[in-house]
Design a protein around this nucleic acid. Structure first.
Lengths: 350, 350
DNA sequence: TTTCAACACGAAAACGTTTGCGTTGCCCAA
DNA sequence: TTGGGCAACGCAAACGTTTTCGTGTTGAAA
């Protein structure tokens, strides 16, 4: 077991100075052809690679991006990571992942762990708890210390940073309009409580779409789920709430669900109640994940293009990191990129 | 925008030496009560945190674990990451993720990027391409340089490292036995080509289970899918192959699929052919993911306990890292932990 | 022979820590 | 007054790089 070889060791072996070795490896003109070749041969033989940590310390940048997301076992988030990793790697960056697990404290802790020099910037999506408490001091502090942040999906406007979002309102409108144009007269929505920003926006899109078609929204057709307790165990509770929705609104012929799980669960309940999909009930969901594609019937969904979001976020962050090098303190102007959603029609609608 | 404060700056402000500041912050007895308090107050005021990179360089360890997995958009792998992250964080480690995307080259590149000082050890699952080429030199080199590796799920025996696996053979046997005991007489298997180690093992379990019940396996009942091309686009191809399986074996009344996707696809095809689940066809799959739980009918599956695998892998790695500190070169003995699978019965079986 | 440029290389600082050890200054005992 | 001892602090090395600025040697021109 030989430890990784260093410049110092090469220097000693070849009886030259450390600086000579370093220069030889970087093909400096200061070094004679002779020694350059000797050093390079030796380095290759021993498989020398510069120590990343030492470089990070010297250059005061780590070429590493920190990602903080609420949860990784989630099609959308893992797609985003895929996108981030793709462009990060392409541009010479690594990716270090922290999970907030939807908890405010873990989000703060994780950011502190990474902000102490381990990374150059953050890409993150805010945890539900943080959104609920509306305490954003950790983001502001991080930014104040000169570390850029790019937020995606779950964002808040008051933070000065680049953002990548989908147009949730518009996406929801597309979904509802699809239901309307397919003949639905009584469209219900299954959504989250309003503190989840994307849930709120999708609800808004639902309302706007109805208004556009002169349909009066009924409070009883809007089911807001408290998703704090929504682990797999609480599935029964979810089913019960949805069943209640159907039972108190017998005329429902269309469902817009703000995520896949709500959609498949609604379908399950509807079937139990004797409804046929898409004949007597049509369903559209948000988030084009594995369930939408592979469940039966497959779901018509609004695709968020998670990977694209990740790619864009990474590009924004790296651009900012590498811009800082040249014109420090040029202008602080932040961008909000909106990724277009599109509707993927499958079997759950006519 | 104030940059992160350093010991040097504190020292200058308070007109003491750097070492005094450092010692004061670490509550050294060498420092008087007076200055200690002064320094600590100042540090708290300016929110001082030691620079991680500098610490890493000094201590020659980064407290960071590198994860290399073939793909992150995959229920099992993201569960494993969740587990790793959980215990890593608990034990003061960070987690840096590289995706091989099932490619040999990306696996090698990624490992090289991380092995240059960025991390203390690896947790990884081998890419399919690597398994196919059987070229493991990059693993051996990494280990030779003193960097420990823990492999999980997709492992190869010839690498000297700790491993965490599920007993694929046994799990598969459980699955097939369930089908047998539920009355299936003609059980087919949908699996992968043999170079995917877990596919091979599960096939073996299938064969053993049949043998145990004196059932002669028929070659025509074993469908081996070439999954190299299995992106979402190739779904049609998969369906066609499965349809062929059913058509040439009309008597099939049980299916064991080595993953969820094969299972739900089989169900889809079967339904199209007029089979009822679980009345005329029962299905068991491997990997207890989101599809198994939420598709209709829900799937009876063999659960792999991905999170547990991740937790165990992280514990093994960190144990080894922290053992090295004390008794360097004690003994090189590696462990292979087998995580028990269990069968989760749902609607796709009687 | 002297001078000077070109060439090839080395010394040292810097990035931010921690820590062993040396160095003050002071007090008290002899 | 002197010496010892202790409390409180600073120096410097080390981790592995890169880079700026010397510095010594050579050869050729004057």
């Amino acid at each position: 077991m030989k430890r990784k070889i260093t410049l110092k060791q090469i220097a000693k072996e070849l009886d030259v100075s450390i600086s000579t070795v370093s220069k030889a490896l970087r093909n400096s003109v200061e070094i004679s052809e002779d020694t350059r070749q000797k050093v390079q041969a030796f380095a290759k033989l021993y498989n020398y690679r510069p120590n990343n940590i030492a470089l990070s310390l010297k250059n005061r940048k780590t070429k590493t991006i920190g990602i903080i997301i609420p949860e990784i076992v989630h099609y959308f988030f893992s797609k985003v990571i895929t996108g981030i990793e793709l462009v990060a790697n392409k541009r010479g960056y690594n990716v270090i992942v922290g999970l907030s697990n939807e908890s405010f404290d873990k989000e703060v802790i994780n950011m502190q762990m990474l902000a102490n020099g381990s990374i150059d910037g953050f890409i993150l999506s805010i945890s539900k708890e943080t959104l609920q408490q509306q305490d954003y001091h950790h983001f502001l502090e991080t930014i104040n210390q000169g570390m850029p942040i790019v937020m995606f999906d779950r964002v808040v406007n008051e933070i000065p940073c680049d953002k990548v979002i989908v147009d949730d309102v518009k996406g929801a409108k597309k979904a509802v309009e699809k239901l309307v144009s397919s003949g639905c007269k009584n469209i219900a929505i299954i959504t989250t409580k309003d503190y989840v920003s994307v849930g709120k926006l999708r609800t808004q899109g639902y309302l706007e779409a109805l208004e556009d078609h002169k349909i009066h929204p009924e409070a009883s057709m809007i089911l807001k789920i408290e998703d704090k307790l929504l682990s797999d165990d609480d599935l029964d509770k979810l089913e019960a709430e949805i069943e209640q929705l159907f039972k108190s609104n017998k005329s429902i012929d269309g469902i817009f669900a703000v995520n896949e799980l709500y959609a498949v669960t609604a379908i399950k309940v509807a079937r139990k109640l004797g409804l046929e999909i898409p004949k007597s009930l049509q369903v559209v969901s948000f988030t084009d994940g594995v369930l939408s594609k592979h469940s039966t019937p497959s779901l018509t969904t609004v695709s968020q293009h998670g990977q694209e979001i990740g790619e864009k976020a990474a590009d924004l962050l790296i651009n900012r990191l590498e811009m800082d090098e040249d014109n420090e303190e040029e202008e602080e102007t932040f961008e909000t990129v909106v990724i277009e959603t599109n509707l993927i029609e499958r079997e759950s609608t006519k």
